[in-house]
Design a protein around this nucleic acid. Structure first.
Lengths: 167, 167
DNA sequence: TGAGTATCGTCAAGTATCTTGACTATATGG
DNA sequence: CCATATAGTCAAGATACTTGACGATACTCA
């Protein structure tokens, strides 16, 4: 019994990528469970990520595309789903016949509110688990990493990023 | 121009879950790109995660299932793919007619070696980007989080985790 | 010994997320 | 007015999972 447990622990991967993936999945599972408990079963991980980018007062779909790291088609599909759930609605942009404005419905704003609450709860739980100091260090490192990566990507783009269509 | 950039930055979500997800995706993209460059195009993220759990000298599929956070069916599908690629092979377990042993092929071991190299390279890059101290703090926090979460799950299971099938 | 039960792996079907390619409609700038 | 770029959509497919059902083997204990 004990021997098996030992084996299990001893062999877990321990590189950054694995740890990040693990932590990310755990967070998402916790968030999804809490949101389901709050009656928002439609709140999947990708949708949550996208909603985090939509300004409370709405925005153009194209602006959303710029902000998110995924393709316009993927965003469209997510929005389709969210629209079907009644979380957001899409209106034609009066300024540009091609564009559309995405904005929250009443239901969407309520869900957003619950989402924020749940996020704060989870954060509190995390701080309780690993201590405020460690948590702060975690956020600090993650922010630094994101900033550094964004900078690295900008450099690539600025230098000569378009070697893709060779061959 | 500048104004648009400001907008873009100002609106990024900043909670733990989002940061973890971002960081995880960025790591995976970096890893996949490097592995592709090394001629291992089949090395997808889920496969990499699974391979991280397979002992160098092979192991039972059921042991793999215990270690991984995903379902046995998902693991089977991943193994199917890896087997088709010639990375691992599955042999009947002489000790147990139901079981199978999973082990690396020669090609798999080579890929694993490249994978380890790439992981170390990325880690070095990360340390270069955010500093050794921050990186250490990051790993420390992630490990603590994983340990605390595992403990929390064990508690749940020990107490009364089976309220699922009510209603 | 043999019936019930648990474990191991598989098959099948479905969902979520994301990708690429092709296309329409509108805007913009000579 | 025409060429080109941009905004959004449609369709098809890949990947990474999920749940449910199932067959085969092993274990237990009366």
């Amino acid at each position: 019994m004990v021997k098996e447990l030992d084996k299990k622990i001893e062999a877990l991967p321990d590189h950054v990528g694995w740890r990040l993936w693990q932590a990310s999945r755990a967070w998402q599972a916790e968030f999804a469970a809490a949101m389901r408990a709050a009656g928002h079963g439609w709140f999947t991980e990708a949708r949550a990520g996208l909603l985090g980018h939509i300004a409370r007062n709405g925005m153009r779909q194209s602006a959303l595309i710029e902000r998110s790291a995924i393709s316009k088609q993927a965003i469209q599909q997510l929005l389709d789903g969210l629209e079907a759930e009644g979380i957001v609605e899409r209106l034609p942009d009066p300024q540009d016949g091609r564009g559309k404005l995405v904005r929250y419905t009443r239901k969407g704003l309520d869900a957003l509110h619950d989402g924020d609450r749940v996020k704060m709860e989870i954060e509190r739980r995390y701080i309780g688990r690993i201590g405020k100091e460690r948590f702060t260090a975690l956020m600090d490192a993650l922010r630094a990493l994101a900033a550094a990566q964004a900078a690295a990507m900008d450099e690539d783009a600025g230098a000569e990023g378009e070697v893709v269509e060779s061959k």
